[in-house]
């Protein structure tokens, strides 16, 4: 009978701390800021229309307060995107995939390859313009992706997708 019961010391385990995270593509910072800018312009137009048509809110106090909030949120969003970009990254290991993002609340997500059900690759119009793509990782029981790695080149995304598929099924998806 073959039976082994080797002692595993905690210090011998591979650690999450020593993982080298690959940074996202620099172009992604531009993509994020352009998307943020577009959202800002849409909100600005909506607010302007609201102030133009509703006479009751055409008061200096309301206009000043709304403008101040808008400017403060815009500055916060702009800075936040930059900080979040610096702290985001992904890593592929033999047996799992890691992704970290966020600066105010930093989240490191780790999914063992064994638990992945499928992966999908997608790219939006702005991302496409910069040659970028995103890859989503799905596990069981959820209709939504567990996490999406954004800000990687199309080539890298395809390579990752193929690598995961090979790890899962031994052949590309």
């Amino acid at each position: 009978m073959n039976f082994s019961n080797t002692t595993i010391l905690p210090q011998e385990l591979p650690t999450v701390e020593n993982v080298h995270f690959n940074p996202l593509e620099k172009a992604y910072l531009q993509v994020s800021r352009i998307s943020f800018g577009i959202s800002g312009v849409i909100i600005l137009i909506a607010a302007a229309l609201l102030f133009y048509f509703i006479k009751k809110i055409q008061l200096p106090v309301i206009i000043f307060t709304a403008s101040a909030i808008f400017i403060a949120l815009s500055i916060y969003g702009w800075v936040s995107i930059g900080l979040s970009f610096k702290l985001s990254g992904y890593a592929l290991r033999d047996k799992d995939i890691l992704f970290k993002r966020g600066w105010f609340m930093q989240k490191v997500r780790i999914v063992p390859l064994k638990r992945i059900q499928h992966v999908s690759l997608q790219t939006g119009p702005i991302e496409r313009k910069f040659g970028l793509a995103s890859i989503s990782i799905y596990t069981a029981g959820s209709d939504e992706a567990d996490f999406t790695i954004r800000g990687i080149t199309m080539q890298t995304a395809e390579q990752i997708k193929e690598w995961i598929s090979i790890q899962l099924n031994g052949k590309p998806q």
């Binding site: 999450v16 105010f104 609340m105 930093q106 989240k107 490191v108 997500r109 780790i110 999914v111 063992p112 638990r115 596990t139 069981a140 029981g141 959820s142 567990d146």
Partner: peptide, 27 residues
């Protein structure tokens, strides 16, 4: 049963070496 682990740290937790760990299963 674990299929994803999340290590979360807000600014306060980062400065005080604390974290919130979240174990995600299919249920």
């Amino acid at each position: 049963k674990v299929q994803q682990i999340q290590l979360n740290q807000n600014l306060y937790q980062r400065s005080h070496h604390l974290a919130t760990i979240n174990f995600i299963t299919a249920g």
